[in-house]
């Protein structure tokens, strides 16, 4: 049984000139438990919208998104918020750390909205990503590579079944990029989480056994390109 099942997923936005533009039109997509898949997504391929739909941040116009057996698109907004907090970890290209919070507090905030605050586990996660001596540092006191490590720890804070990573190495240099990717993959595997990563970086994509092209999956991209 798949952890993530998507069928006939559509999402459109109204552009400033009033026309409706379909950004996501994916007939079928599936991801197994603990599976790690990379999606090749160029700019404008609708990758962020796609991940936001899976995470329940956006509501689809039509279609089905099933995560761990639950139909996300049928949930109310507050149910989606709760479901996201408990089941989905999200790693962003820009890390999206809370600037006034220490590394530990960033992880704890993630827990607060999900499974509940567990300071020991948060510390363990930060140790796992190599930040045992930086847990009380604010994001501005950390390097970009270290900030991404905090983001990885935070994404795993609620022991999610699925981790979504949107260009997670986009802001890192080659060395940090390699290390971060390895860390994300290892940490997900250790915590039993499946990983869906989108990137346009060939070096990143080459690390995965399973790489799909979002442009091919997403009929909207094809149509827009035409």
């Amino acid at each position: 049984m798949s952890l993530l099942d998507i069928s006939e997923l559509k999402k459109s936005f109204r552009t400033p000139d009033g026309t409706v533009q379909t950004v996501v039109d994916i007939p079928q997509f599936a991801l197994g438990e603990k599976q790690q898949i990379a999606l090749r997504g160029e700019s404008g391929s609708g990758k962020t919208t796609f991940l936001n739909l899976i995470a329940g941040i956006l509501k689809p116009d039509s279609g089905k998104i099933k995560v761990a057996g639950r139909e996300v698109s049928l949930l109310s907004e507050s149910e989606r918020d709760r479901f996201r907090a408990e089941n989905i970890g999200y790693i962003f290209q820009t890390f999206n750390l809370l600037q006034g919070y220490t590394a530990l507090e960033n992880v704890l905030v993630g827990m607060k909205f999900g499974s509940g605050v567990n300071r020991d586990f948060a510390t363990t996660l930060l140790k796992r990503v190599g930040l045992s001596d930086k847990i009380n540092h604010l994001p501005r006191q950390l390097s970009t590579g270290q900030q991404q490590r905090v983001a990885v720890a935070r994404a795993l804070a609620n022991r999610p079944k699925l981790v979504l990573a949107d260009e997670p190495t986009g802001n890192l240099d080659a060395k940090n990029s390699r290390e971060a990717l390895q860390l994300i993959r290892e940490a997900c595997a250790e915590n039993g989480a499946a990983l869906l990563l989108v990137s346009h970086d060939q070096t990143v994509l080459s690390q995965f056994d399973s790489v799909l092209s979002l442009s091919e999956l997403n009929r909207a991209t094809t149509a827009n390109l035409l």
């Binding site: 995470a55 941040i57 507050s78 918020d81 996201r84 907090a85 999206n96 600037q99 905030v109 909205f113």
Partner: peptide, 15 residues
């Protein structure tokens, strides 16, 4: 942005 991050982490609108 901060509010959006919290919402992405699972904070409800009511929170």
């Amino acid at each position: 942005r901060e509010i959006a991050i919290m919402r992405a982490l699972g904070a409800r609108r009511s929170t």
